[in-house]
């Protein structure tokens, strides 16, 4: 049987790189999709050299949905008879203060985190229904669990994506394909580097291991690291009347 293939969307991010390495170490071939193909070629070379797996870069722009179908077809061709899996890592997070200062940023955040994600996932869904195997793993965020004063534009896009994934999960369940929603807290990546007040910071390798484990088990929703599950459960329970006064 041929090795499984992971298609990684937004593959230049630190979490995506860690997922690619963990998957290749586990015996998978890897496709790295994103805009910075020069950088992705370097990562693909790293995977080939370190792990001796097949790895290649794919040009992909989440904001340009007209290219999504062709990109997915190239991934299908690369995988051939092998099982294709999908990891969606792209997203953007300007701080709430930057957005307040320049509301023109809002379109870009929604376009990448929500519209772009839904566009590519919806075009991938028939492929997974036909395949009746593999898994989809999508990064959202604990910020999507509740709109907070400090991060609600970003949080609302991740919350909306979470709702979309609930529907997609029901649809693909009928074909035996799990859809995993991963909700990391702050992760030590370029996105969070140099920002203040980051509790329970996780390393990208920790998130990657949790993602691949959840894909194998078909877990619906994963909080990484685990303590975010009780924390967010409590935060979700706080009445809005009180929550609006909190500075979190």
């Amino acid at each position: 049987m041929s090795a499984p293939v992971w298609l990684i969307l937004g593959a230049s991010s630190a979490i995506a790189r860690a997922v690619a390495r963990a998957a290749a170490a586990d015996g998978a071939d890897v496709l790295l999709a994103g805009r910075d193909t020069a950088d992705l070629e370097a990562s693909a070379a790293d995977l080939r050299t370190r792990f001796g797996r097949r790895a290649a870069a794919l040009d992909f722009d989440a904001l340009d949905s007209t290219g999504h179908a062709a990109m997915l077809q190239r991934a299908r061709d690369f995988a051939g008879e092998a099982t294709l899996n999908l990891f969606l890592a792209f997203g953007t997070m300007p701080s709430q203060a930057e957005i307040d200062a320049d509301p023109a940023l809002i379109d870009g955040v929604i376009a990448a985190n929500y519209t772009g994600a839904v566009n590519v996932l919806h075009r991938a869904a028939p492929m997974f229904e036909a395949q009746k195997a593999g898994a989809l793993v999508v990064l959202t965020s604990v910020a999507g669990d509740r709109g907070r004063l400090k991060n609600y534009v970003y949080g609302s896009t991740k919350g909306a994506l979470g709702a979309y994934l609930q529907g997609l999960r029901a649809r693909l369940f009928r074909s035996g394909v799990p859809v995993v929603t991963v909700k990391p807290g702050p992760v030590d990546t370029a996105m969070s580097y140099g920002l203040n007040d980051m509790p329970l910071m996780a390393q990208p390798e920790t998130v990657a291991a949790a993602c691949l484990k959840a894909a194998k088990k078909g877990t619906e929703i994963v909080y990484v690291p685990f303590p975010w599950w009780p924390i967010m459960t409590i935060i979700k329970l706080i009445p809005e009347r009180i929550f609006k006064k909190l500075n979190i």
């Binding site: 230049s12 991010s13 910075d36 370029a190 580097y193």
Partner: peptide, 8 residues
């Protein structure tokens, strides 16, 4: 600074 890509 902690660049993750050559261009950074």
């Amino acid at each position: 600074a902690r660049p993750e890509r050559p261009r950074e």
